[in-house]
Design a protein around this nucleic acid. Structure first.
Length: 948
RNA sequence: GCGGGAGUCGCCAAGCCCGGUCAACGGCGUAAGGUUCAGAUCCUUAUCUCCUAGGAGUUCGUGGGUUCAAAUCCCACCUCCCGCACCA
């Protein structure tokens, strides 16, 4: 057993002492690795650990490759959730406070302070930071910051003035779910029952009654041509209201809702629905009557409904109901849409089909849906719709909406779906049209083009996710970039607004350069102006002047500029895939907007999320494991490896505690081995030595390639497991030969593996490195490189030995024999020649047996093939079942002397394994011992064998 | 609806882009043996089916097709997951 805690502490202390990760510019090439900073509203769990661990492995790998690699970290205080939490603490909400106490183990004294949002952020900031330190992340902590630091705010102000000067910031109105009591927008977690406040846009069609306007809300403006009457509920008392400069009649609820939609609403008087029944209204030169209907609801729309009985089942049924009471009414539905599969009067048909008999029938909803969806996708407007005839309903909807609006015959009403929705404060929410909202105009064509250019040139890992980025860029429209509440930076030109949190987190990687100077008090917010940022980021302006104006010493100022020039651009940005459609895309958009092309980001690395025992982690499932708790229990390195090895980059990683244990044991076993071997190569290398060193080269090449593609699961797999079977073979060989001078070889193998392990499991790798007696820190050592010593002869001969052993084992297994004697026969020389010819044919793509045989017969050296045509088929198959590498060797290399290899090398293995001696003959040796006539089955690399 | 992704031998999970190296890496689990006072760990072996000679058969969501050869390419279908905004 080893003490993970003390090993980890030991090495963290050493790194700290030698300021290992405090990166300054020097003459080496640089890499700048960044990750999306955390939002400190809860402690980190295993899932958060994934992205940061991947980035850390990346940074550590690049350092070993010789790059001066900066890996910094900040904390994102900006946003509303923390504000909401503070409010809920203030209100003493049980559930939340219990979470703090029981799940997060926050001291009660501290929870009391959580009424102040910053205290929440500060607390979890420290918590998360400690977790990152304990995980061994190679972060340069001198560059830490939060997004509410004064200098950061100056930086964001500069960013926004910049964007505005580029015309990327525009103003407009925007609807949101709204709590009238809190005077606040509501999102899902602000509502009772966590309902997402979704809303629908209704078209208000204006009907005229003398000097009054009667608006009706509809989702189907195209049906205006089929309107026959209006429905009004005689039991409702309507309001006459002055809306802007018109007089409207609407339900009281509607009047209230209109106020939030930027209309001035003034109630003039009341009028009962009954009074309105029978009056005639007009629209588009058409005069229609108002009839009573009970299905009309006061709280929906305007409380008055436009009736299209041909296409709306509700309207149709209400008309039938009314005509029953009042036979004088003679109104015929007007069909205006023709739809394949629906008859002349669709509403009539469906009502009759479903057996609906009155307007209170709940089946009317189903009927409406059916008619609507069929008409929407396959309906076409009829001749009686004038210039719109022939249009598909799906197109006509928008066309007619615009047309009505141009005629000033319509307006818009926004209404919450699935209402009523209540705010956590209890008040009923409405839709509010926020005026003068600020947007980033991601719709801008040139901006999109530039962004696509950047993406095209950028490395995206894994590349599969690239199409998703392209899609997002195409789909993005204006995006609100300011809000009225929460922590953050005020919009520099409009102090009523705070920069929204996905907009103040897009170019902050540049700020890491400044943060170091802020933290050492060399940079103060007070006198920083835009000139400062322009100088640092663009090199624009006069050093002297800016130094005086911004109160920054000249040498400091030019040093900051030099730092920026050195470290920028970002070489890799890591993040979870949930940030693809927002942060990562905005990050690129804003970089191309603000920075010149040479400073555009070089790479994005996207990883999937983490599942716990196959399930999503969530508070309600109680399967969240806090990172720091896990570190205490299992050690940082086992957790790092368990997260990485469970899935490839974009897949969801299934984390489970058993796998952490397995990894831990594996590491401990390697650690034990590190105590066993001493450096120093043997005088002469034997075949198996050359072979295993060749395999080591292979391991280095494959591992390196995998890490470079951030295929870390694969890389770790190579280091930890794949090499194991090679090693086993090697150990078996030296054991059989009773060798003693192999320690140096194993020392070398281990050293290379430990070096490659160190980015993944940095603490234990240092300890292993020290045990191996290697000098310095492994994290400072060079990433291993292959040394070209791979000898193909040894590859072929070990291969031969290995496969022959397998054959023998196989025969013994099937026959259940107890071997007394093992005899091997190597193939005739003509077979060797034929085999090489076959191999080169196969390599050239010729696998047709007949053609190969013809070719062989044509050559006197191989014409013997006539006696044994089956040889060709077997050879082709065996060549096809070898790796590409071996296939090539088969053709390129001179044949090896199988007889001498088998007799000299195989005998010890057989002796060790089965305690018997072997005899080796050539196939055509006339003195051979071959009672069962097996020798003729011999093929190159596949000696025939006889066991008795 | 729009867009993206997945379905592999008990579980997790590679492979699919670039067809033969694939009965299909590896890990977990399971079984047997070894180490151990015992256990944990560790090591070895086995783990689709059949086989007394190194072999054969049937598999990679379903059904077709292309090819000497398909988990891999093409077509159709079924099932599941994720994102769609002002929220970090």
């Amino acid at each position: 057993m080893i003490s993970w805690d003390s090993i980890e502490t030991k090495w963290r202390t050493k790194w700290n002492q030698s300021k290992e990760f405090e990166i300054e510019p020097d003459n080496r090439p640089k890499k700048f690795i960044t990750v999306a900073y955390p939002y400190p509203n809860s402690p980190q769990h295993i899932g958060h650990g994934r992205t940061y661990t991947l980035a850390d492995v990346h940074a550590r790998f690049l350092r070993m490759k010789g790059f001066n690699t900066l890996f910094p970290m900040g904390f994102h205080y900006t946003g509303t959730p923390i504000l909401g939490m503070a409010k809920r603490v203030q209100e003493g909400e049980r559930e939340l406070i219990e979470n703090f106490e029981k799940l997060y183990h926050v001291p009660p004294q501290t929870i009391k302070e959580f009424v102040e949002p910053v205290k929440i952020a500060d607390y979890f900031h420290e918590e998360i930071k400690h977790g990152m330190i304990e995980m061994g992340y190679s972060i340069d902590w001198r560059r830490e910051f939060t997004t509410i630091d004064p200098v950061y705010k100056k930086f964001i102000e500069w960013q926004f003035r910049k964007l505005k000067s580029l015309n990327f910031v525009i103003q407009g109105s925007h609807p949101v779910g709204w709590c009238p009591k809190d005077q606040n927008p509501v999102s899902q977690h602000d509502t009772l029952g966590d309902v997402e406040p979704d809303f629908t846009e209704y078209i208000l069609v204006k009907f005229r009654l003398d000097d009054m306007i009667i608006p009706t809300a509809t989702l189907r403006p195209e049906t205006i041509f089929g309107v026959t009457n209006l429905w009004i509920n005689p039991k409702i008392t309507y309001k006459k209201v002055r809306v802007n400069d018109e007089n409207w009649i609407v339900s009281p609820e509607c009047a209230y809702k209109l106020e939030f939609l930027n209309k001035s609403v003034e109630v003039i008087s009341e009028v009962s629905g009954a009074e309105l029944v029978g009056k005639t209204v007009s629209v588009l030169d058409k005069k229609i009557p108002m009839f009573p209907a009970s299905f009309v609801e006061s709280q929906t729309g305007t409380g008055i409904v436009m009736s299209v009985p041909a296409h709306a089942p509700f309207d149709y049924q209400a008309l039938i109901d009314y005509q029953k009471q009042n036979s004088a009414i003679n109104i015929k539905p007007i069909a205006i849409i023709k739809t394949e599969g629906l008859g002349e009067i669709p509403a009539k048909e469906i009502v009759e089909k479903l057996g609906i008999t009155n307007q209170e029938d709940s089946k009317l909803d189903e009927a409406t849906n059916e008619v609507y969806s069929k008409e929407f996708y396959s309906g076409v407007l009829r001749e009686n719709t004038g210039k719109f005839a022939g249009l598909k309903v799906s197109e006509a909807k928008d066309t007619i909406k615009t047309w009505l609006s141009e005629l000033k015959n319509s307006d818009i009403l926004l209404e919450l779906n699935d209402g009523p929705i209540r705010c956590r404060c209890g008040a009923e929410c409405v839709v509010k049209l926020l005026n003068n909202q600020w947007f980033l105009n991601y719709l801008d064509k040139d901006w999109k083009n530039k962004t696509n250019q950047c993406f095209d040139k950028m490395s995206i890992l894994p590349n599969e996710i690239r199409t998703e980025f392209n899609y997002v860029v195409g789909w993005l429209r204006q995006r609100a970039c300011a809000r009225q509440h929460g922590l953050g930076t005020k919009l520099p030109w409009d102090q009523n607004w705070i920069v929204e949190s996905l907009s103040d987190s897009v170019i902050y990687m540049a700020y890491y350069v400044l943060a170091k100077y802020v933290n050492s008090s060399q940079l103060k917010a007070d006198s920083l102006s835009d000139e400062f940022f322009e100088f640092v980021f663009y090199g624009i302006g006069e050093l002297k002047q800016i130094s005086i104006k911004c109160n920054v010493p000249e040498d400091t100022l030019s040093q900051i500029r030099d730092d920026f020039v050195y470290f920028y651009p970002v070489d890799a940005r890591h993040s979870g895939r949930d940030l693809v459609p927002n942060h990562l895309t905005f990050f690129v958009l804003n970089h191309v907007a603000i920075f010149p092309e040479e400073l555009w980001p070089k790479q994005i690395v996207v990883n999937g999320s983490v599942l716990m025992d196959g399930k999503k982690m969530s508070k309600s499932m109680g399967n969240i494991i806090p990172l720091r708790k896990a570190i205490k229990e299992y050690g940082a390195d086992p957790i790092r490896l368990a997260i990485i090895i469970s899935a490839e980059l974009l897949q969801d990683a299934d984390f489970n505690l058993e796998s952490v244990n397995t990894i831990k044991n594996k590491l401990e076993a390697i650690y034990e081995d590190c105590n066993k071997y001493k450096p120093g190569m043997p005088q002469t290398l034997q075949s198996e030595d050359k072979w295993i060193l060749g395999r080591l080269n292979n391991l280095i090449i494959e591992t390196t390639a995998a890490v470079e593609k951030m295929r870390l699961r694969e890389a770790l797999h190579h280091i930890l497991f794949a090499f194991e079977s090679d090693l086993q073979w090697y150990l078996k060989r030296i054991d059989a030969k009773e060798r003693e001078e192999f320690s140096g070889i194993l020392h070398k193998l281990l050293s290379v593996r430990v070096a490659m392990l160190s980015p993944f499991a940095p603490h234990i790798a240092e300890e292993m490195w020290e045990r191996l007696g290697n000098s310095g820190l492994v994290s400072r050592s060079a990433w291993p490189v292959p040394d070209n010593s791979t000898e193909s002869i040894s590859v072929q001969s070990e291969e031969l030995l290995h496969s022959t052993m397998e054959d023998i084992k196989n025969v013994l297994k099937v026959t259940k024999m107890n071997p007394q004697k093992i005899v091997l026969y190597t193939a005739d020389s003509w077979k060797v020649k034929a085999f090489r010819k076959i191999a080169s044919s196969v390599l050239a793509g010729q696998t047709n047996i007949g053609a190969i045989i013809k070719e062989l017969i044509a050559d006197p050296q191989t014409e013997n093939i006539k006696k044994d045509p089956d040889f060709v088929k077997k050879s082709v198959n065996s060549i096809l079942s070898e790796s590409a590498e071996i296939r090539k060797l088969r053709v390129e290399l001179e044949p090896i002397n199988e007889k001498s290899i088998l007799s000299s090398e195989l005998s010890s293995l057989i002796k060790k394994e089965y305690g018997v001696n072997i005899e080796v003959f050539e196939e055509s040796d006339s003195t051979k011992y071959d009672p069962k006539n097996k020798a003729k089955m011999a093929r190159p690399f596949k000696p025939a064998l006889f066991i008795e």
